[in-house]
Write a protein that binds this DNA or RNA. Structure first.
Length: 849
DNA sequence: GCGGATCAC
DNA sequence: TATGGTGATCCGC
């Protein structure tokens, strides 16, 4: 959202000068700059807010005075020395310049306001803002002519524009639209980095490579008038609602959409131009980055009726600046060429760069620095006046450098209480989603990714469908507990946790749903032959997904086929992606190595030789921490598996290879370059992740599991007719279950149960809720057959929360809902705020959990 | 380590 | 009537 920079520019003298009112057209309604300033000052003056603003301003002025005094004391000799040092660093930076990535920054235009206008035609021609009388989060372009801006209080906006309509925010709606947009973005970069509801970075390098060989029909989109908007896949019809072409130009009447007609090299094939009702033409987008981004924006507009602006550049810093250049509904590209970058940077005001705020701008202005060229010229002086982090940042900016991969940072979570609490939180949110969708599932899966990037998935399937937070958490908690206990006394050091509910029954299954353990056991008892027979399956049967035949089968049968199904994915993984297979195998070796050395290496600086499992480069004698950082960087670099060419990471690695004597500086360089991206990751780090659930097994492990499952199946099979369950020694963490017929009888007699005692663990359960009790019993029964999956995760965050997968030729759709969260840092700041009562927040801007 | 300042959305 | 809330990082004390 374009709010922040505006926010600081709404008040006072020099700030007012910066108000972007160039769109103020003579002779049209709206206010001129002077009038706007006057009204704002009248409304502001004398207020406490204004007083505080003045106070802050004085403080900044003092800082500037101090800085100027410092500057006056600098000798020419000091300056010369600094110049040498800085230039040496600049040279290193120059050598590390990486132009091989294509980064795209997508920014939805006046997002909230645009959504409101889209959904309420009455707002179309009016100046509107989203927010309240206290604070606005955004305004449409009509309102901006009156000086109504994001982060302006509504009451002031009303004085500027009395006819302004202030619409209260509707975050659920914005989130839904945002999700639609993100679904499109994921097609171009599954690892795209969402900064907020309306902003995201993509690395389309890989997509571009693949796209070069794409046939035309894969880049072809149909435009057609109609009502359905949901089909935006290539080669299929994209229906264009009547409002499409009416709303967008009205919203952005200053800048007509540049998408139409998509000129060379994208072509428009008009097929039925004579009949406007049946107007249908197709657009073919080219293979260049520019064309890709046009396609993205085209699809966004078709799907949501909203326009987006975009920037294309070799790094995130530049891409972000670019997306602002042709706003609204435009795009701008900096070609991956050093000269092109320098030309762009030359006159760029530093304030345009993300990270340079009001105060920094003012301080640098005092040194005569406004543009990036000036910033570069003063680099030696800046290195003497500012902290190292600051002048490094300045140097990066002034050289047009920025992050070339969309790395994410997360804090570690290792306290069990926190983990349980996060788990509970996720279950709560997941339950809400399920209830919204009206879904109930039988399988709960938790996903844990540790600090070494190892991903474990633990799943448990219960007999009755569940959907409440309590039910889900009851299962998830047990799964988590098992993992925590397994590592005891060492803590689980997590980077990511996910909870998934799957196994949604189809209509037929719903009818057969057993609501109690009695029913479950009875059902098992009644169909022993089915269970036995189905064990001899055809190959095809074995590879059916569990749900497709679950209603016909026993519990263990289902479990077994689930594993088969997982194993099938393993084969896919092997054939499709040898690289990731290698990676996961290397990871196992690495894991072993690490666990062998963990205790010593964690507490000392003991160094050893590691080979990176991602880039396969030997890392020389480095500490585990440094090595982890390297692996971290490699994993975050999107192009590693495909491309041995330079990515930021491989770049760092190659630098290391060249200068073996000094590994750490290379890492720190890598880190520094990543500074911006890391700054930007904040939201994603703590925010929700929506995730496409694609679990890929570790082949080695899956094999073991499968062998085990085969062995077990026989036991199950032979024992089932006489006893319901007699499972012994299933797996690690197994529990031995032996349920005799009399147990069932006793359970039957007990119904309805008052004091609920689990027949498996013999422990009295506190709950009086039968469903919860069933859940518990199921957990106990399940303990022996927990799936162990190794997930080579490619989509850590920002994936669509709901994924619908077609399950083969049945045409049925299997749905999975997952919630994933990265543990975020709880700062003092937020800790103190958390004490506040939990009344519903009405925030106005773009962040969400 | 803490709190204030800065920045972002 | 009335100028947000949250999170992250940096920096000085």
């Amino acid at each position: 959202m374009d709010s922040t920079k505006e926010k600081n520019e709404n008040y006072k003298d020099d700030l007012l000068l910066r108000m972007g009112l160039n769109d103020n057209k003579a002779g049209m309604e709206g206010l001129d700059k002077e009038k706007i300033n006057k009204i704002i000052m009248e409304a502001t003056k004398g207020s406490r807010f204004y007083g505080n603003e003045l106070k802050k301003e004085k403080q900044v002025n003092r800082r500037i005075e101090n800085m100027m005094q410092q500057k006056a004391q600098i000798t020419s000799q000091q300056l010369r020395k600094a110049q040498l040092q800085v230039d040496k660093f600049a040279m290193e930076l120059e050598q590390s310049r990486d132009l091989n990535n294509t980064i795209v920054h997508i920014d939805m235009d006046a997002f909230y306001a645009a959504v409101e206008m889209r959904d309420n035609p009455e707002l179309k021609d009016k100046p509107i803002a989203v927010g309240s009388m206290s604070m606005l989060s955004t305004s449409n372009y009509h309102a901006r002519r009156f000086g109504v801006r994001a982060a302006m209080p509504g009451f002031i906006a009303k004085r500027l524009c009395p006819q302004l309509l202030i619409v209260p925010p509707n975050f659920d709606k914005y989130r839904a639209v945002s999700r639609e947009v993100k679904e499109i973005l994921a097609d171009y970069d599954p690892n795209f980095l969402a900064m907020s509801l309306d902003e995201a970075y993509l690395n389309i390098t890989k997509h571009l490579q693949e796209r070069q060989n794409w046939p035309e029909d894969k880049r072809k989109y149909f435009i057609k008038t109609g009502s359905s908007l949901d089909n935006d896949k290539p080669g299929k019809e994209v229906k264009l609602g009547e409002r499409e072409r009416s709303i967008s130009p009205l919203l952005f009447e200053d800048t007509p959409p540049d998408l139409q007609p998509p000129g060379n090299p994208s072509q428009v094939n008009t097929e039925e131009q004579n009949n406007p009702q049946e107007f249908q033409n197709s657009v073919v987008f080219g293979t260049s980055a520019e064309e890709v981004v046009k396609e993205i924006r085209f699809r966004i507009e078709q799907k949501t009726t909203l326009t987006a602006s975009a920037g294309i550049a070799p790094n995130t810093m530049l891409a972000k600046v670019c997306s602002d250049k042709n706003k609204p509904n435009g795009q701008y590209q900096i070609l991956p060429d050093r000269q092109a970058v320098m030309d762009f940077i030359k006159d760029l005001p530093i304030r345009k760069v993300s990270g340079i705020g009001k105060v920094t701008e003012k301080m640098l202005k005092a040194l005569g620095i406004i543009t990036c060229t000036e910033l570069y010229q003063q680099r030696a002086l800046l290195s003497l006046l500012f902290s190292e982090t600051s002048w490094h940042q300045f140097l990066h900016i002034s050289m047009g450098l920025g992050s070339t991969h969309l790395a994410r940072t997360f804090s570690e979570m290792s306290k069990a209480e926190e983990q349980y609490s996060l788990c509970q939180e996720l279950c709560g949110e997941l339950a809400q989603d399920l209830q919204k969708e009206g879904l109930k599932g039988r399988t709960v899966t938790i996903k844990l990714k540790n600090v070494n990037f190892e991903v474990k998935t633990r799943a448990s399937t219960v007999s009755s469908v569940i959907s409440t937070a309590e039910e889900i958490f009851a299962i998830a908690k047990e799964l988590l507990r098992t993992e925590i206990d397994a590592d005891f006394p060492h803590p689980l050091r997590l980077r990511l946790m996910g909870v998934r509910v799957s196994g949604f029954p189809n209509e037929e299954e719903k009818k057969h749903q057993q609501r109690s353990i009695i029913g479950f056991l009875q059902a098992g008892n009644q169909t022993p032959s089915a269970t036995g027979c189905r064990l001899e399956k055809t190959e095809k049967d074995q590879f059916l997904k569990p749900l497709e035949m679950s209603h016909k089968k026993s519990f263990f049968d289902k479990k077994r086929s689930e594993r088969k199904w997982s194993h099938q994915d393993t084969f896919k993984c092997e054939t499709v992606d040898q690289k990731s297979l290698q990676t996961s195998q290397s990871f196992q070796v690495l894991k072993q190595k690490m666990s062998e050395n963990l205790e010593t290496s964690e507490n000392s600086d003991k160094c050893q030789i590691f080979t990176c499992p991602v880039c396969f480069r030997e890392q020389g004698s480095v500490s585990l921490e440094a090595f982890n950082k390297h692996v971290d960087a490699c994993l975050d670099a999107p192009s590693i598996s495909e491309n041995s060419e330079m990515s930021s990471c491989s770049h760092a690695s190659s630098t290391e290879v060249n200068k073996k004597e000094n590994v750490h500086p290379s890492f720190s360089l890598c880190e520094k370059q990543d500074y911006k991206a890391r700054q930007k990751n904040i939201e994603t780090t703590s925010g929700d992740c929506v995730e496409l659930v694609e679990t890929i097994d570790n082949p080695a492990k899956a094999e073991g599991v499968d062998a085990l499952s085969n062995k077990r199946s026989k036991e199950e099979c032979s024992s089932l007719p006489s006893k319901l369950f007699n499972v012994e020694h299933c797996h690690q963490n197994s529990c031995t279950v032996s349920l005799e017929d009399e147990d069932v009888e006793s359970l039957r007699r007990q119904e309805p149960v008052q004091a609920l005692v689990c027949p498996v663990c013999n422990l009295e359960q506190k709950t009086s809720d039968l469903t919860l009790f069933n859940v518990h019993v199921d957990i106990c029964l399940n303990k022996g057959i927990i799936q162990e999956l190794r997930n080579d995760e490619v989509n850590p965050v920002n994936q669509p929360k709901e994924s619908t997968k077609s399950t083969g030729n049945s045409g049925r759709v299997q749905k999975t809902i997952t919630k994933t969260k990265r543990p975020g840092l709880v700062t003092k700041h937020s800790a103190s705020k958390k004490v506040k009562p939990s009344n519903p927040r009405h925030t106005l801007d773009v962040f969400f959990k």
